[in-house]
């Protein structure tokens, strides 16, 4: 069942709609989507999952980063229709109930955000980065987090937060990502 903003697909969207099945934050959904609907718009406008942000709509800022089948991807450049069967995790799906994900805790602890608009994308990107296992040094974190622009300029704090969680994970390999 589709939660979120319930309304029929309007106008030309209805005529072109294609059925798809997505698992979003653990919930399976059957959706009819117009082929030109981006995953980002689907999340924000129809499913009311507005935690995923639109900062440029052209893959140039990283604010819309989500995890698709465990990989970090810019949701603005993915047409939802191409994702039939995919498993998607957004910022709303990272915390386990009241327990924040270690990255979310570290971002708060290190003051790794100001306005907060790029933050969900930064955190999802960091979760993807940890799953990739390619970042060990600060240089590597910086480079591999450069697809997420933070205009408030929190970069060193973001790097600190991620480094902190990476260090903890070495001693606690079972931590979920």
């Amino acid at each position: 069942m589709e939660a979120g903003i319930s309304r029929p697909l309007p106008g030309i969207e209805d005529r072109h709609a294609v059925p798809i099945r997505l698992t979003i934050n653990g919930v399976e959904r059957q959706l009819d989507v117009a082929p030109w609907t981006s995953l980002l718009d689907l999340l924000r406008e129809r499913l009311d999952l507005t935690g995923t942000k639109k900062g440029c709509d052209h893959g140039q800022c990283g604010a819309c980063t989500v995890l698709i089948d465990g990989r970090r991807i810019n949701a603005c450049l993915k047409l939802a229709v191409t994702l039939d069967g995919a498993d998607i995790v957004t910022i709303e799906g990272l915390a386990q109930g009241d327990g924040l994900h270690p990255l979310q805790q570290a971002f708060i602890r290190h003051d790794a955000f100001q306005c907060g608009y790029c933050t969900p994308g930064q955190i999802c990107s960091a979760a993807g980065l940890m799953a990739e296992g390619r970042a060990r040094t600060r240089d590597e974190i910086r480079e591999l987090m450069s697809g997420n622009i933070c205009r408030c300029g929190c970069y060193p704090n973001i790097t600190d937060a991620i480094e902190d969680v990476l260090k903890d994970r070495v001693s606690e390999p079972a931590m979920p990502v």
Binding site: G62, L77, G128, L129, G147
Partner: peptide, 9 residues
């Protein structure tokens, strides 16, 4: 090239 996210896609 690009960013980690874009390279994933």
């Amino acid at each position: 090239g690009a960013s980690a996210q874009l390279r994933n896609a």
